[in-house]
Amino acid sequence: MKLIRRIAVSLVLIFVVSSITFFLVRLMPGNPYSVMYHKLVMQGMTPLQAEDQVKGIMNAMPNEPVFVQYIQWLTQLVHGNLGTSIEETGVPVTELIFNALPWTLVTVSIGLFVSFLIGIVLGVISASRRDTWVSSVIDNVGSIAHAIPVYVTAVALLYLFNVVWHVFPSSGAYGIMETPGLNWPFLASFAYHIVLPEGTYILAGFGSWELAMKSTTIMVMNDDFMMAARIRGLTRQRIMNYLGWNSILPLFTLFMLSLGTMFGGSVFIESTYAFPGIGNLLATAVTTRDYPVMEGCFMLTTATIIFANVLADFLYAVLDPRITM
């Protein structure tokens, strides 16, 4: 029951975020759509033609009051229509986004998973060697790697592994000879192309997991049941197992923040490696002022994160008996 409520709340949240995006762009001084309309008219289009063209792009009549535009825009949104791109004339925004989103979802998930794994392993090591140089090295490296901006890491990795040592490709998600799908040559080429982007995600991401894991591990290590497990004569393996699960579960609450950071990072990483994902799409849209694409990317990214969170909460409730969904 709670799951249904969570989904409902998420839908409302997505609706609110979309509405904010709508008003944000249109109520700003120099509303790009009316600027566009006037430009078209100046270029010699009849007002009717210009209105029509702007309507195709933004899903609302440019000369109506903002509230009427909002209703028109919403009706189209419910039908899954986000307007068309300004740069790539006539291409629906949804098409652009759904071509880009899978690439980002796959790379961000892999990056999240691997950096999480590395983070928890280092966190446990750092916690069990507390107050030694090992722990202080791990913590310092973790927090500095976390603080170095992803674009710096991305540029550095690209320079080292592509320009200096021609090891990995500099751009794209797969070789031009391959056809995307479930075939080995494509998957191999894909894996080869994502090494550098993933490396960047991981370097930027593992630090926060490491620090969080260290603190939960230390907390659990001091819990009474850990001493009890030792006194009960359980094997080391099982005690580590108890420690691990009890320290990892609280990290689920960090998932939300981490996913946001990852998607934010994808804007920089994908534009540095010219990777055809949603981050790159957004970065391009921003530099070319392609407002419909921008709005669409923003809404879809937010929606993805919101639903990923519902999923994470659900998983958390399944794994931790104390939490009910």
């Binding site: 939300m256 923040l257 946001g260 998607f263 934010g264 921003v286 002022r289 923003f298 990214t301 994160i305």
Partner: peptide, 19 residues
């Protein structure tokens, strides 16, 4: 909570070019 779910860099980008 709402602000926390929005990826901040993306929001900053949009704000940066609209404002």
């Amino acid at each position: 909570d709402m602000v926390l779910t929005i990826p901040s860099i993306v929001l900053i980008l949009i704000l940066a070019i609209t404002i």
